[in-house]
Nucleic acid binder design. Structure first.
Lengths: 258, 258
DNA sequence: CAAATTCATTGATCTGGATCAACAAATACC
DNA sequence: GGTATTTGTTGATCCAGATCAATGAATTTG
């Protein structure tokens, strides 16, 4: 891979994928936006060269210019505490928006780094704001996405504040499963693009605990693990294990509420 | 206090406090909104009869109609897990907005209950949305507030996921102190309107642990506690204890970024 | 204003999960 | 293709903080 620096050359012509043909347009921003409006949104969005594994999309303190929508692959967001201790804040799958936490401060409070080859859409925020004022559906959608993020973070606070190690990992896996399903992937079989250490860090557990729990869940017949690959054998029971409201229907429902 | 039930009578005439004369207008929504626009915002806002201690502003599952801005007093938001176990999600002080997590689902995922006599402004969301599309500054402000909430929730996730009991409580107190200061109250002396149990629940600690830590902090000369009343004697050191970035200036800075 | 209830403090004990440690399996690197 | 490095698994030990328990304020209630 010698052609690493040719960003603009690649992005402008070759990757001419518009929002309307993007398989994520049901999940990403443009819900409730009509064709013509979609074109206008599309026009402000920049599709960048894919990130290779480990590459940063942005770093802590970078000035906030744009939101990013994951098109394929995955990202993790994280900070370092004073002592250089990494804290993983989230994982981001296709159709999810990254950077919403930077609007208030004008700088990214977290870094975002790709966990595998990952492509994103860059959405310049000033343009998005302008467009939002003109397209009511878009404004509403933006508010909805932000509200959902707040909601999700609250859920995570419950998990971190009250749940046992077992419940945390179960909830994490069920959550991932739901997110995969929503975007048309298998809900019972997927790859973990993040390491055990990332999972542990995210869940507030030691990586050894995560590893032990995977083994235990496997012995209990709840799932099968092989390295990065996960197969959920008993999603039902895993849900119960997570001690949470898992009344997620099997079909793709838009936005289930608590 | 015999006149408890006269909601409408009181709210319409007597409590005619407009946004522009509200002491919170620098903190609450209307930053970057000019006088005329403020009048329009003011027009949609409903000032309700104060809530007495323990009263609910809304409950889990209530249809989402409005956001609420706390004018005086304080609220806690919480859910119940399956087993009837309460989970405190947050405390809300004057100038803070409640209900942002309900936009996405159309229903309140949390209940909000007053911790003391508390008055709020009700902001009907459809009106706010309409107005936001017309007043760019307001739209931006709304997005900023939501972004800040996401940011704050992320901070809380770090606290719950990685910090020791001592660090959690220290961070909590410093955080409260900062919030009080921002709205013109003393940063070193304030009342905790919530119980030890609420604090513990919120921080993912047993209430006994919270109590012990208060005693310890007091013995260490960090603060003085008397029942609900707190006096921070060594804010500096408490900051360090919290193991967090506490470079909060003493002056009122608008929106410090990490 | 006395009884009941809630809330806070402090002590004693127990345990889930962290930490330390050693090794195995993948993957990257030269 | 062989060495180095990262990543994952498993075992042994330890401790921060939960839980259990008892007592003492405050606050509420009738």
């Amino acid at each position: 891979m010698p052609t690493r620096k040719l960003e603009k050359v690649v992005s402008l012509k070759d990757i001419k994928v518009a929002c309307q043909q993007c398989s994520l347009n049901e999940i990403c921003l443009p819900v409730g936006v009509d064709q013509q409006e979609l074109d206008r949104l599309d026009a402000i969005i920049d599709r960048k060269r894919p990130l290779t594994r480990g590459e940063h999309l942005f770093r802590v303190g970078d000035p906030f210019q744009s939101l990013y929508a994951v098109r394929s692959g995955s990202l993790k967001t994280y900070t370092m505490s004073e002592d250089g201790q990494e804290q993983v804040m989230g994982f981001h799958l296709p159709g999810e928006i990254v950077g919403l936490d930077a609007i208030a401060g004008g700088r990214h409070p977290l870094a975002a780094r790709s966990l595998e080859t990952t492509s994103v859409c860059e959405i310049p925020f000033v343009d998005l704001e302008t467009l939002s004022a003109q397209i009511p559906g878009l404004q509403h959608e933006l508010l909805r996405v932000m509200s959902q993020e707040i909601r999700d973070d609250e859920q995570n606070m419950v998990i971190l504040g009250q749940k046992s190690a077992e419940e945390r990992l179960a909830a994490f896996l069920v959550g991932l499963s739901n997110r995969f399903r929503r975007r048309g992937f298998s809900a019972t079989q997927f790859n973990l693009s993040m390491s055990r250490s990332d999972i542990g860090n995210y869940l507030g557990l030691a990586l050894e605990t995560v590893s032990r729990l995977f083994t235990r869940f496997q012995n209990d017949g709840l799932l099968r693990v092989d390295r990065k690959h996960i197969e959920l054998l008993d999603r039902e029971r895993l849900c119960e294990f997570s001690g949470a409201q898992c009344a997620q229907p099997t079909s793709r429902s838009a936005h289930p509420q608590a």
